[in-house]
Amino acid sequence: MTNRADLHTLTGAYATDSLDDAERAQFEEHIGQCPACAQEVRELSATAARLGLAAAVVPRPALKEQVLRSIATVRQEAPRTEPGPPGGTVPRAPLRRASRWALAACLAAATAFGATAVWQHREAGDARDQAREVQQRTEELASLLAAPDARTRTAKLAGGARATVVVSEGRDRAAFLATGMAEPPRGKVYQLWFNDKGTMRSAGLMDPERTTSALVMKGRVGEATGMGVTVEPAGGSPEPTTKPVALLDFPA
C-alpha cells in the first residue's frame, strides 16, 4: 500500500498510464481530495499530448536486444536523498515540480530518440558531449511544452507532412514539431523563420538527416505573428531564398 506522502509523486506515472490497478485506484481516490495533484495530472497529460504530435522514430530492430543485454551490466545510480525536516513532514511542492519536469524531459527525449540511437556507435567522449547538448535542448523543449500558457496550432503540409507550432507568450518562445517532411536536396537544409508582419527573421535550422523534428526556435517571438520554413543552402541564409514549404500563423 502506497503511503500518503508517496502519492504526491505518482502524478507522472498516472499521466502516462504506468500504475498497476491497485495503485491507480488509490491514486484516483487521492486526486479527488488533492487539487494540486489533479492540476498537475492535467498539465502532464497535456504535455504528453503535445509531444505526441511529433511521430516517434522507429528504432532499429537490434536496439531492443542491445538495451536488454546492457541492463544486466550497467549499474543503476542510487537515488539521491535529502535530510527530511523535523517531524517527518514531506515537502510536497518540490516533489511535484521535480516529477513534472522529469516526465516532460523524458517525453521530449522520446521525440529525439532517433538521434540518441546514433550515440551507441560513437566514441564515449563524443557521445557524452552530444548527450549533454541534446539534454539541454530536451529540457528547454520540455519546459516550453509544459508552460501553463502554451498554445498550439497544427497544419498539414505538402506530401502528407504534418507540422505543429507551440507558443508561450509568458516565455516569449516558440517550438516547432514536424513529422513526415521530405528530405531536403543534397547540400540543402530546412531553415525556420519568424514572420515579423511580413519580414522573415531566422529562427534556426532543422537537422537535414531527419524528417521528424521537435525543437525550440532560436530567438524570441517578439512581434512575430507566425513562422515559415524554407529550403536553404547548408549553413542557412540571412534571408529566405526560396518559396516557403510551410507557413503557419501563431495560435491566438
Rank of each mutant, 00 (worst) to 15 (best):
M1W: 08
M1G: 03
N3I: 09
A5M: 09
D6F: 07
G12I: 05
A13I: 08
A15F: 11
L19K: 04
E23D: 14
E29M: 06
H30I: 08
I31F: 02
G32K: 15
C34V: 14
C34G: 10
A38Q: 05
V41E: 05
V41Y: 09
L44S: 01
T47A: 05
A49M: 06
A54S: 11
V57G: 06
V58L: 02
A62F: 14
V67Q: 13
R69Y: 15
A72E: 03
T73W: 05
T73V: 00
R75L: 12
R80S: 10
P83Q: 15
G84L: 12
P91D: 11
P91R: 07
R92V: 00
R96P: 04
S99Q: 02
A109V: 15
A109L: 14
T111H: 03
A112S: 04
F113N: 12
G114P: 05
H121S: 15
A150L: 02
T152Y: 07
T154K: 02
A161T: 14
R162I: 07
A163V: 06
T164M: 15
T164V: 15
V165Q: 05
G170P: 00
R173A: 08
F176D: 04
L177G: 06
T179F: 15
G180I: 13
P184C: 14
T199L: 10
A203P: 05
G204T: 04
G204D: 10
M206L: 10
T211L: 06
S213F: 14
G226L: 05
G236V: 04
S237L: 13
P240E: 15
A246K: 03
L247H: 03
